[in-house]
């Protein structure tokens, strides 16, 4: 029972990591940028969702509002920052680090703006359903209705992802623009627009992750930093290229961390995640689902 419950908790937190990893992978595929600002974009969206909750007391309204906000912020980030950056910097010692620096700057910018508007104190996000664990007979397990909701929402998002990418023209354009931008452009795909759409979808996905994770913790301008790191680790486990890899990477990390937290020690969760990251990068740098191309690109 304890094992099953731990496993379920792992699936629940793992699906949030998966969502964050999906957001990172999507941006990486479309623009070759690991978007460190994703935590910032998600936190801004989550605060907007908080605004909705405090005014209407309705979590279900907060989720779409945060998603739309996340999409808009994501699209803006691409148009206002990444496009000019790619136009301006074509060579030189900063070529490789420029996107990292730019998204880092954006992360700081959004975080400080959020802090200026809402202050640095911890805010509580009310969950829409009970966060008390299910009870079977006399035993109560930590897995709650809200955890179930998280898993369910994540599955819905992933099904939509799979449908869009495999069955629609937009999905084909997204894949083509990521795989061979020059040829896609020749074939009539508006690569810049498609990339911006990729950023928007990623922004919305990150926003969902933010809104889902926050009721279990609390909200502050840097409360999603850890989620960004865990999302990155998940994405690396999956190979940083593959959407399905991101999902599975998130689940592996979630379940693994849950087991360590439950059976080993609560203080070892972060070092464990870091060791996993280093090990994956050393032993299997292309990730479990990555292409063989290696990590130089």
């Amino acid at each position: 029972m304890r094992l099953l419950s731990t496993f379920l908790i792992g699936v629940s937190s793992g699906s949030i990591y998966s969502l964050m990893a999906l957001a990172l992978v999507l941006v990486w595929r479309s623009t070759r940028v690991v978007n460190f600002a994703q935590a910032g974009q998600a936190i801004a969206s989550t605060y907007l969702g908080y605004l909705v909750i405090t005014h209407t007391n309705n979590y279900w309204l907060a989720l779409p509002v945060a998603m739309v906000a996340g999409a808009v912020i994501g699209a803006l980030a691409d148009i206002a920052l990444i496009r000019p950056l790619n136009r301006r910097i074509k060579s030189g010692p900063v070529l490789e680090i420029a996107p990292v620096i730019a998204t880092l700057g954006l992360l700081g910018l959004i975080r400080s703006l959020v802090g200026m508007i809402w202050g640095g104190d911890l805010k509580q996000y009310r969950a829409p359903v009970s966060i008390n664990g299910f009870t079977f007979g006399h035993t109560t397990i930590p897995f709650s209705r809200f955890n179930l909701l998280i898993v369910f929402t994540a599955i819905v998002v992933m099904v939509i992802f799979a449908f869009v990418f495999q069955r629609t023209g937009l999905g084909l354009a997204l894949r083509a623009a990521a795989f061979q931008p020059e040829i896609a452009r020749l074939a009539g795909v508006r690569v810049d627009l498609v990339r911006t759409i990729g950023w928007a979808i990623a922004g919305a996905t990150g926003a969902i992750a933010g809104v889902l994770v926050t009721p279990s913790t609390s909200l502050s301008p840097n409360s999603l930093d850890l989620l960004l790191v865990l999302g990155f680790v998940s994405a690396v486990i999956g190979g940083l290229e593959s959407l399905i890899g991101a999902v599975i990477g998130g689940l592996i990390l979630g379940i693994g961390l849950a087991l360590i937290l439950e059976y080993v020690s609560t203080s070892l969760a972060f070092p464990a995640a870091f060791v996993v990251l280093i090990l994956i990068l050393i032993v299997k740098p292309a990730g479990l689902f990555g292409m063989k191309r290696g990590r130089d690109a």
């Binding site: 990486w28 690991v34 680090i97 790191v229 690396v236 990068l281 990590r295 130089d296």
Partner: peptide, 8 residues
């Protein structure tokens, strides 16, 4: 590692 991996 290079670029984004090292950064992450």
């Amino acid at each position: 590692l290079r670029g984004p991996y090292l950064a992450g």
